[in-house]
Amino acid sequence: MLAGDSSLIPIAGATDVLVHWPGNLEAKTRSYLDLSGLGELRSMQWADDTFTIGALTTYWDVICNEQCAQAFPLLINAARQVGSVQIQSRGTWAGNIINASPAADGVPVLMAYDATVVMQSCEGIEEIPLDEFYFGYKQMRRRTDQLVVAIRMPRRAHDVEIFEKVGARRAQAISKIGLAITHSQDGWRIVASAVAPTILRCKAIETLLEEGSPVRSPDDLMAAIAKDVSPIDDIRSSRLYRERVLARILYHDLKGIVPSFV
């Protein structure tokens, strides 16, 4: 169906689509493709070296999964900070990726776990690393005939796993800044949200960590942060706040973990 009509919008939990629906006259003119009948997409599969979650898997599904809590604790951590239980029970990880909000809560942790996006179309299956999936504000490497069917993550041993969400209140807030940090034998992954047109890996910070350059205060991170992100002033916060808080969280959370942070 997606191949036949490029304007169709696939929907799963609909928690983004229906926000302010009655007054959203423009949204009502569009066509939607309901995925909720595709029960086989609501799944979690554990292989020896990968963990795959189907596109209709909700946050709540993951929160309730004990194996997930062991192997991918940041997924649980982030999921619990998405909206409320009422949203967690409907919202899907794949929907979070495809809605492409720069402030999404699910995407940073997936990216920090090196997730890939698995898409299917009449032409076959394509798998794209999540950190290469976005190329601009709400711009994605998904053709309109492709449907995201799963998200896959490699199973690795991590010695650092951190997720920080900075919202206007503790629960139920849209992120002003999100930060996911992991470290494994494959190196550092520093993923930031709400500080750029897309969620992204902070490569300059990662390099700084890999190289072990000394960091003595949050200020020492500002140059790398300036290379990585480009936050804006908006209704929820300011550019200055986002830059500085990103630096302060990075500094304080890594101090004591990373020898070069002193």
Binding site: A14, T15, V17, L18, D34, Q86, I87, S89, R90
Partner: peptide, 12 residues
């Protein structure tokens, strides 16, 4: 499971 009925399309 609790959901917000304002965000559920009835057909679902």
């Amino acid at each position: 499971v609790p959901v917000n009925a304002c965000l559920v399309p009835t057909f679902q």
